[in-house]
């Protein structure tokens, strides 16, 4: 069979491209919403941890955050997804929703440490300048420190979003048809591994390249402010 015959067999016959298309849709939905959860929750955890480090306040919240970071960064993503689906959300049938929560919580743990690193990298003098004008800790954190920290940790956050996108490929463990699972279904129907798997890899690659150029443009825009 020629390449084009194989291509037609794997993607066109029986409208098999729909597996990839639906899978891609799920992959994107999971990535986008998990990223939103990850960024928001990660930021909050980072702020709690940093305010605690700077001022000694928020003791209990800080303890909760540290426990969360230890557990979520100390266990494999696949295991977290399985536990979420089979143990915690056992009565929830919406697999995409469970995946969004599982990947969101996982990503937030990494985002939190990235943002905390960015916050620590901002000069202590910035914090003191805010204090000396009469601002309180929370306002300084959100209006002075975090905008600067963002710039410092944007490359790492962009990296984290790429990792998240690729990590969603384990969604198949809970029987969710994401991009990877879609390609694997085609493989199981046509007994042809190369074409669907390479096709799936190619789509991930394009997505990652798009994400990279997007964050690059964002970085440039943030940097332009200071020149």
């Amino acid at each position: 069979m020629s390449f084009s015959d194989k291509f037609i067999q794997n993607f066109v016959e029986g409208e098999r491209y729909l597996y990839l298309l639906k899978g891609l849709g799920n992959t994107l939905i999971i990535t986008v919403f998990a990223l939103i959860i990850g960024l928001v929750l990660g930021f909050l955890v980072a702020v709690v941890r940093s305010l605690h480090d700077k001022t000694g306040s928020l003791k209990i919240l800080n303890l909760i955050c540290r426990a969360y970071l230890t557990v979520w960064r100390g266990t494999p993503t696949v295991v977290q997804v399985l536990i979420m689906y089979y143990v915690i959300f056992v009565s929830v049938n919406n697999k995409v929703l469970v995946a969004v929560i599982a990947f969101g919580l996982n990503s937030a743990a990494y985002v939190a440490e990235i943002v905390r690193g960015g916050i620590m990298a901002v000069n202590q003098g910035q914090y003191e300048a805010g204090l000396s004008l009469g601002a309180d800790n929370t306002r300084i954190m959100f209006e002075i420190i975090i905008p600067q920290a963002m710039k410092a940790c944007l490359p790492a956050l962009s990296n984290e979003s790429i990792t998240l996108l690729k990590e969603t490929s384990v969604s198949g463990y809970i029987g969710l048809m994401d991009l990877t699972k879609g390609a694997d279904i085609i493989r199981s129907q046509t007994y042809e591994a190369m074409i669907p798997l390479l096709g799936c890899a190619f789509i991930y690659l394009v997505l990652v390249m798009g994400l990279t150029s997007l964050t690059k443009r964002l970085e440039e825009r943030l940097r332009r402010d200071e020149r």
Binding site: N123, G125, Q126, E128, A129, L131, S132, L133, G134, I144, P147, Q148, K151, D225, E226
Partner: peptide
Amino acid sequence: LRSNVGMVFQHFNLFPH
């Protein structure tokens, strides 16, 4: 206190953003 007692720092500490 701090909004009444202003401070100028050795290293300026202007907000770069």
